[in-house]
């Protein structure tokens, strides 16, 4: 649905130039919620703005719904933008228009007639749960309500894609959750493709199907959350599910088990302890619900060397679990020293 290929973006000239995007390529599938995370200054905003060409890439191509935006004339680009809704961190609502007036803006721009505009704007305000605030000015709305108006405005023209740049960063955790749930609902109901930018891992965990990690203008990793979790050494997975750092005893084996889907429900550790009579200690564990599925990882300490634990590890793998041998206690101690 969105295909970004070898995009570079530099600001400023020659010596003083900043490379905000450095050979970024990205694929967002139809109907998924794709999260881009990264530190402040990583280039996240530049990336999302490059998708509807608010920021024209220095080089590379952006294709949305089969149309290569980077090749369009200004007039064609304007039409293409109507298929791409955008939600902003600071809402960017017109202070002089009511909630309904703001939602109607895009429809006015598209030349939709008055009656249809009112019908559609009220319908979409109802969808975001603001039917009773249609006549309120932005100054009379809370942050969460403003963002709902922002979402309603971006959706009024029936876009196929929603771009969201830190849409929840100015909101408190509870409001953030309700906004994310709204985005998820719409994503499911209308099959909207969503690309969202955030620096909050919680946002990715709550709604994203896929994610990419951006650092210094480069994509470090990208893929579906499930595949990232099952990728050994994935930084994104470790950032999403940080494990505690409890030091194991020397000579013992440390393993990390990654759960996803159904395996998260099974009492794996208890079974392990029962079947093999092992004194399993849990060094760290985390279980999260991602896109309605449970996923997580656990770091376990098993007494004895990896060789001695070959049977239980094979058993775990046999159950379809992803098991990494992080090391034996001595090796880890050595690595730490």
């Amino acid at each position: 649905m969105i295909s970004v290929k070898h995009v570079f973006k530099t600001f400023g000239a020659a010596a003083a130039a900043t490379t905000a995007l450095d050979d970024v390529s990205l694929e967002v599938a139809r109907g998924e919620i794709f999260g881009v995370i990264g530190q402040s200054g990583a280039g996240k905003s530049t990336l999302i703005r490059a998708i509807n060409l608010l920021e024209r890439p220095s080089s590379g191509t952006v294709t949305v719904d089969g149309e290569e935006l980077t090749r369009l004339s200004p007039d064609q680009l304007r039409l293409a933008r109507r298929k791409i809704g955008m939600v902003f961190q600071h809402f960017n609502l017109l202070a002089g228009r009511t909630a309904q007036g703001n939602v109607e803006l895009g429809l006015e721009i598209a030349g939709v007639g008055g009656t249809e505009r009112r019908r559609r704007s009220l319908e979409i305000l109802d969808l975001v749960g603001l039917a009773d605030k249609a006549g309120a000015y932005p100054a009379e709305l809370s942050g969460g309500q403003k963002q709902r108006v922002g979402i309603a405005r971006s959706l009024a023209g029936n876009p196929k894609i929603l771009l969201s740049d830190e849409a929840t960063s100015a909101l408190d955790p509870e409001t953030t959750r309700s906004i994310l749930d709204l985005v998820k609902t719409i994503n499911v109901q209308v099959g909207l493709t969503v690309l969202l930018i955030t620096h909050e891992m919680d946002v990715v965990k709550r709604v994203c199907d896929s994610a990419a990690m951006l650092e210094h203008g480069r994509i470090l990793e990208q893929g579906s959350i499930v595949s990232l979790i099952s990728t050994p050494g994935s930084r994104l997975a470790h950032e999403l599910f940080p494990l505690g750092e409890i030091a194991p005893h020397p000579g013992n084996t440390v393993i990390e088990i990654t759960f996803s889907g159904g395996s998260a429900d099974r009492p794996v550790i208890a079974q392990l302890a029962r079947s093999y009579g092992l004194d399993v200690s849990i060094l760290g564990a985390v279980v999260e619900t991602i896109g309605g599925n449970q996923a997580g990882r656990t770091r376990l300490e098993l007494p004895g060397t990896p060789l001695a634990n070959a049977a239980p590890i094979a058993d775990l793998r046999g159950q379809g679990l992803l098991v990494e041998i992080v090391g034996d206690g001595a090796a880890m101690e050595g690595a730490r020293a």
């Binding site: 509807n52 608010l54 304007r78 039409l79 293409a80 933008r81 109507r82 791409i84 809704g85 955008m86 902003f88 600071h90 960017n92 609502l93 017109l94 803006l105 895009g106 721009i109 598209a110 405005r153 971006s154 023209g157 771009l163």
Partner: peptide, 11 residues
Amino acid sequence: GLVEAAESLGA
């Protein structure tokens, strides 16, 4: 930001 919002709507 308001100008950008309008641009993003194809104004």
